[in-house]
Nucleic acid binder design. Structure first.
Length: 433
DNA sequence: GATGGCCTAATTAGGACTTCCGGTGT
DNA sequence: CACACCGGAAGTCCTAATTAGGCCAT
């Protein structure tokens, strides 16, 4: 049985559009999280019984492609094929997600998690910080205390974990797939299969995001909630309720653009050059962004369930940072500070790369780890803590820096190319080196 | 038989949407 | 005209808290 301190890699995006890697000098961002439940291994194909060194790697194997473009096209075609599939035996990632993953949300949520982000500069951040930091000084919306009749007053049920509220673990442990809409959206925004294709940050620092494909997002939400009739109209109503509760603001004058009044302090923005860095140029998303923008449904045939291909990940449970924009008033998009271009966006003032609760390990990280001899012997059921992984990556960073120092330039061969494996990183002699 | 502890099912309140609607703005 | 957006109202679903009742041991 796995312990909470054990580390599992979820292979999040091997099937992800490789075009996202095109032309970016940064190594992909990486999120690491403790995932306690063995069925997650099943979900990810990493059965605890499996010999990790073999099956694990086989699962994660990514064949390099001669022609990056062809690979991209094939990937897209495959993805689109998935979208069109509705047969019962086509177990979508999302279905898989719902069936296998959600039951463990409670553990996931309450488990302190360390995130590690790797960019070209190496490990940007790796913080093991179990505490959550409520940053909202007050609860945004006044709660109506309704009358009770004929019964003893009881303790109020935990409400939606609006930024400064913690949710009891049990709430997520009862087999229900309780995932609030705002959490769901945050997930999507951290899922590279969805962001920026269907939803994207327009101003991460301000928590402003756009529903690039509102219909697709609504369908995803509906699928998650088992509401096949869900549409943007309905989902939008739920979003509007968030105004009252101070969870969201509408960004005036911009359609389909909303703003989180708070974001997890430890929110991580996986940009690796895509999605979130387009905030200055909405058109620079290579990942179908233009095709998808405003309504990429036009690019999809009707009835396509593009969410079929999407697997996303359990809800973040984090501390939150509120944005300067006052929740009380609808806000225009705040002037944005210059976003760093290192592939990881940080909130003004402090690093975003902190402990976090996303059970995601990107494919890129896994590939990276595959290249490390030490990591190849890492057993989820063994000693591998997230923090150790962070240390490991820190060492990796150092080694890489040393290598780069010798080469004196981040050469092109270090940049990921479509259809190419991520850069071969210098194997680590030891995580503790 | 009375009492207390434990367990379980039923009840209830309330949160978080969902659905529907009429309306406005772009 | 389509779509985004708004917010009221009523409904559904789910969960936690509470209560009631049964069982058992003392």
């Amino acid at each position: 049985m796995l312990q909470q301190s054990e580390l599992i890699f979820e292979y999040a995006s091997d099937h992800f559009n490789l075009s996202q890697l095109v032309g970016h000098s940064d190594y992909p961002a990486v999120i690491v999280e403790q995932v306690p439940h063995p069925h997650l291994l099943t979900y990810t194909g990493l059965s605890p019984e499996q010999p990790q060194n073999e099956d694990h790697q086989q699962l994660l194997k990514v064949e390099p492609c001669e022609s990056g473009e062809e690979e991209i096209m094939e990937t897209l075609v495959a993805a689109d094929s998935l979208l069109n599939m509705d047969c019962a035996d086509t177990l979508s990632l999302e279905q898989h997600y719902a069936q296998a993953f959600l039951p463990s949300l409670g553990d996931v949520i309450t488990t302190p998690v360390t995130q590690v982000t790797v960019s070209a500069e190496g490990v940007v951040g790796a913080v093991d910080q179990p505490q959550w930091h409520p940053l909202h000084s007050e609860k945004p919306a006044a709660r109506l205390q309704s009358k009770k009749r004929g019964r003893k007053p009881r303790h109020r049920r935990a409400e939606s974990p609006t930024p400064n509220i913690t949710v009891k673990k049990d709430k997520y442990n009862k087999g229900g797939n309780t995932l609030y809409l705002w959490q769901f959206l945050m997930e999507l925004l951290q899922d590279r299969q969805v962001c920026p294709r269907y939803i994207k940050w327009t101003d991460p620092q301000a928590g402003i995001f756009k529903l690039v494909n509102s219909k697709a997002v609504a369908r995803l939400w509906g699928k998650h909630k088992n509401k096949p009739d869900m549409n943007y109209e309905t989902m939008g109503r739920a979003l509007r309720y968030y105004y009252q509760r101070g969870i969201l603001n509408k960004v005036e004058g911009q359609r389909l653009v909303y703003q989180f009044t708070s974001l997890p302090q430890d929110m991580i923005y996986i940009t690796d050059g895509e999605g979130t860095k387009e905030e200055d140029e909405d058109h620079d998303n290579s990942c179908n962004d233009e095709g998808a923008s405003e309504d990429s449904d036009s690019t999809m045939s009707s009835g396509q369930s593009d969410e079929e291909e999407l697997g996303f990940h359990p809800p973040p449970k984090k501390s939150f940072v509120s944005f300067p924009a006052a929740p009380a008033a609808r806000t225009k998009a705040a002037p944005r500070p210059a976003a760093p271009r290192d592939g990881v966006l940080r909130p003004s003032g402090s690093s975003l790369i902190q402990e976090q609760h996303l059970p995601i390990v990107s494919a890129e990280m896994l590939r990276t780890l595959q290249n490390l001899q030490k990591v190849q012997s890492l057993q989820p059921a063994g000693h591998a803590s997230v923090f150790q992984t962070a240390q490991l990556l820190g060492s990796l960073c150092e080694r890489q820096a040393a290598t780069e120092g010798a080469a004196d330039s981040p050469s092109a061969e270090e940049k990921p190319h479509p259809g190419q494996r991520p850069p071969q990183l210098v194997p680590l002699a030891s995580p503790n080196q």
